[in-house]
Simulated scan of single mutants.
Amino acid sequence: MRDAVIVGAVRTPIGRRNGAYANVHPIDLSAYVLQGLVNKTGIDPAVIDDVIWGCVQQVGGQSLNPARLAALAAGFPETVPGTSVDRQCGSSQQSVHFAAAAVVSGQCDVVVAGGVESMTMVPMGASMADPAYGAPYGPLFSQRYPDEPNQGVGAEMVAEKWGFSRSQLDEYAVQSHERTAAAIDAGAFTEQYVEIPGTGLTVDQGLRRGTSLDVLAGLKPAFKSDGVIHAGNSSQISDGSGALLITTSEKAAELGLKPLVRLHTFAVAGSDPVIMLTGPIPATAKALARSGLSINEIGAFEINEAFAPVPLAWQVETGADPKNLNPLGGAIAVGHPLGGSGAILMTRLVHNMVDNGIQYGLQSMCEGGGMANATILELL
């Protein structure tokens, strides 16, 4: 029976909005990561059957199928095709799922999955900016959901539903910075970085060392005047990209590649599109049920820190050990480059599992429209 294994996983250091990558075109950002994956694994790009690339704002500099453009910009043979995926924040995690399905089914033997987002060059909401092309919510959708979905308001709803205070959320945000600082200082990310020429960026740029409860207490709520969500306990707006090389165990042996982890189980779930951010809870339940594993058998979790209430609510509902939840920090500390985040989180998870001998890891992230992907990896 065919399986799906990851034999390479790389990412850029994440750049702040208007930071190190402000003048790097997202196609170039993607191309450098693809080149880095080739250099890391030694794969001949000619054997790659497809490039599946996540990207959320597919307009302007991210239009015209960034997957194909990035592969060509990276110098891949013209015979290597590419397709672009939008499952909102989970776009490049979905790319991994599609890649795994392609190799398990025998449609492909070698696939690159990943994604990109330049939130500097193509700002969030850019695809909705021109009213001449109409609003994304048609009359029938608006009839069913008269309250237009807003992620920040959804975060406030999650905090209220689970009873999280601002101090609890801020404590989590401080922990994210502290864990990220410790991971960077320990060199946890060094082997996975692809440095982008001319930028000088060698580590994730968003980290604010010394972030404290006192500092966060001075920030104003962003979505409600009496709310608990603010810039300091939300993910940062960022630029970045990541890529993974996926094949079968048999093909890896043929190509002389060493499998790092097996894609053990993957699932996707829908949830309330107005509160929007609770999808990782049912997605995790679905993945665990399919895998036959219990939450206590998972040694590391990457649950995207879109807003602090998201991983906290997930932890309450799943009963996961808090020490294994985002042990290397997360998007509150380093940023969330939308279409690139799924691949970036998975790259972090793969290397964390390999470096620390963790048998099983699970990744999930909330997605616009009320959805979530969940992926369980098994160490090889």
Score class of each variant (00 low, 15 high):
102 A>F: 08
79 T>C: 02
125 G>W: 02
110 V>R: 13
98 F>C: 12
108 C>A: 13
142 S>M: 15
139 P>F: 10
66 P>T: 07
135 A>F: 13
110 V>N: 09
74 A>C: 02
88 Q>H: 12
101 A>M: 11
68 R>V: 04
87 R>I: 10
134 G>P: 01
102 A>M: 00
69 L>W: 09
144 R>Q: 15
112 V>L: 05
69 L>N: 10
144 R>F: 11
133 Y>T: 13
102 A>G: 06
130 D>Q: 04
71 A>H: 02
75 G>D: 01
66 P>H: 06
81 P>S: 04
140 L>G: 11
144 R>Y: 11
137 Y>V: 05
101 A>N: 11
106 G>A: 05
106 G>E: 07
105 S>G: 04
99 A>Y: 01
141 F>V: 12
73 A>S: 12
136 P>G: 05
133 Y>H: 13
104 V>L: 02
67 A>I: 07
117 E>P: 05
102 A>H: 02
68 R>A: 08
73 A>W: 06
115 G>P: 06
108 C>K: 03
109 D>I: 04
91 S>R: 00
133 Y>G: 09
113 A>H: 03
127 S>E: 14
115 G>Q: 05
87 R>L: 12
82 G>H: 08
73 A>Y: 01
127 S>V: 03
136 P>D: 01
83 T>H: 11
92 S>D: 04
90 G>E: 02
124 M>T: 15
116 V>I: 15
106 G>T: 01
118 S>K: 11
99 A>M: 07
96 V>N: 08
115 G>T: 03
108 C>Q: 03
142 S>Q: 15
84 S>T: 14
85 V>C: 08
143 Q>M: 14
78 E>N: 14
132 A>V: 10
98 F>Q: 14
126 A>M: 08
121 M>S: 10
90 G>C: 06
126 A>N: 06
143 Q>L: 14
144 R>V: 13
87 R>M: 11
76 F>E: 02
98 F>S: 15
109 D>S: 00
131 P>A: 06
86 D>V: 05
101 A>P: 01
70 A>V: 07
89 C>D: 08
93 Q>N: 09
117 E>K: 11
127 S>I: 06
137 Y>H: 14
142 S>R: 14
86 D>I: 04
96 V>E: 05
138 G>I: 05
73 A>V: 10
137 Y>A: 14
127 S>L: 12
80 V>E: 05
112 V>E: 12
138 G>E: 01
75 G>H: 03
133 Y>R: 13
120 T>G: 06
144 R>D: 11
118 S>F: 01
76 F>Y: 13
142 S>N: 12
130 D>W: 04
86 D>Y: 07
93 Q>A: 11
73 A>G: 01
145 Y>Q: 13
141 F>T: 13
